[in-house]
Amino acid sequence: MRLFGRLYARVLTWARHPRAVHYLCGLSFVEAFIFPVMPEVMLAPMMLGKRHRAFFYANISLLFSLGGSLVGYALGHWAFQALTPALDALHLLAPIEHGVEYLRGQMHLHWVGLMLVLFLAALQPVVPMKFVTWAAGIVGVPVLPFLLCILLGRGKRVWLLALLVRLFGERAELLLHKHVETIGWAVLALLLALVLWWFGLR
């Protein structure tokens, strides 16, 4: 919050703007591959202002997040290809390619585990969406399973927020702000435990 306080404040002002829905679409799109502020920052006050439209806001944010995820996926793929000569000149290409090939091999051997990792990464707020989308493009995760994981992971986040706002109003936002760090780290711990368990079976 300290590093991105101005951006956070700016996004909050967008939530009260007459063109807030347009800003929400843009924020949800660019956050998936570059912008550092999550769309939930806008979603919460917009949902609280019009609680009957909470799920509409959630769904439109999710739709544009999926579009942005495809951009991040493509950037991850093409940026890695474009940087190959520079990485080779720095003698970094060989170890990076070795790591990418290892991940691709693991993806083919343990694809269910990979899908679970992508789903949980999209679900929790600690790992930025940008890392997930770029990494998936670099490794070459199949596009349709990738989008499904993003849909379910990010969808659960925005749908849960909409449900809480519809049921509890302002208390829902206070609850999320109070416990977001605990929830995020708990999901990260669960993610690590599931990954270790899955690969430990092989």
Results as ranks from 00 to 15, higher is better:
Phe4Ala: 08
Arg10Thr: 12
Leu12Glu: 08
Thr13Ser: 15
Ala15His: 10
Ala15Ser: 15
His17Gly: 10
His17Gln: 10
Arg19Asn: 08
Ala20Gly: 04
Ala20Tyr: 12
His22Gly: 15
Cys25Asn: 10
Gly26Cys: 14
Ser28Cys: 11
Ser28Gln: 09
Phe29Thr: 04
Phe33Gln: 07
Phe33Trp: 08
Met38His: 09
Met38Leu: 13
Pro39Cys: 09
Met42Ile: 09
Ala44Gly: 10
Met46Ala: 07
Met47Ile: 02
Leu48Thr: 06
Leu48Gln: 04
Gly49Ser: 13
Arg51Gln: 05
Arg53Thr: 01
Phe56Thr: 05
Tyr57Lys: 03
Tyr57Glu: 02
Ala58Asn: 06
Ala58Trp: 04
Ala58Arg: 04
Ile60Leu: 14
Ser61His: 04
Leu62Gln: 07
Leu63Cys: 11
Leu63Gly: 11
Phe64Tyr: 14
Gly67Leu: 14
Ser69Thr: 00
Val71Cys: 13
Tyr73Thr: 01
Ala74Gly: 06
Leu75Asp: 07
Leu75Asn: 06
Phe80Glu: 00
Leu83Lys: 03
Leu83Phe: 08
Ala89Phe: 11
Leu92Ala: 13
Ala94His: 10
Ala94Thr: 13
Ile96Leu: 13
His98Thr: 15
Gly99Thr: 08
Gly99Asn: 12
Tyr102His: 14
Gln106Leu: 13
Met107Thr: 01
His108Gly: 02
Leu109Gly: 11
His110Thr: 03
His110Asp: 07
Trp111Gly: 12
Gly113Ile: 09
Leu114Cys: 11
Leu114Asp: 01
Leu114Tyr: 08
Val117Ser: 07
Phe119Arg: 02
Ala122Asn: 13
Ala122Tyr: 04
Gln124Lys: 03
Pro125Tyr: 05
Val126Ser: 05
Lys130Ala: 11
Lys130Glu: 05
Lys130Tyr: 07
Phe131Gly: 09
Gly137Pro: 05
Ile138Tyr: 09
Ile138Lys: 13
Pro142Phe: 00
Pro142Trp: 00
Pro142Tyr: 00
Pro142Ala: 01
Val143His: 06
Val143Phe: 10
Leu144Glu: 03
Pro145Gln: 00
Phe146Lys: 01
Phe146Ile: 06
Phe146Leu: 00
Phe146Ser: 03
Cys149Tyr: 02
Gly153Tyr: 01
Lys156Thr: 15
Lys156Leu: 15
Arg157Thr: 06
Arg157Pro: 05
Leu161Trp: 05
Ala162Lys: 03
Ala162Tyr: 06
Leu163Pro: 01
Leu163Cys: 04
Leu167Trp: 11
Gly169Asn: 08
Arg171Phe: 04
Arg171Ser: 12
Ala172Arg: 09
Glu173Arg: 07
Leu174Trp: 06
Leu175Tyr: 15
Leu176Asn: 12
Leu176Gln: 11
His177Gly: 14
Lys178Leu: 07
Glu181Thr: 13
Thr182Gly: 09
Thr182Arg: 14
Trp185Val: 12
Ala189Gly: 05
Ala189Ile: 05
Leu190Arg: 04
Leu192Lys: 09
Trp198Ala: 15
Trp198Val: 08
Phe199Thr: 08
Phe199Asn: 09
Gly200Asn: 02
Leu201Asp: 12
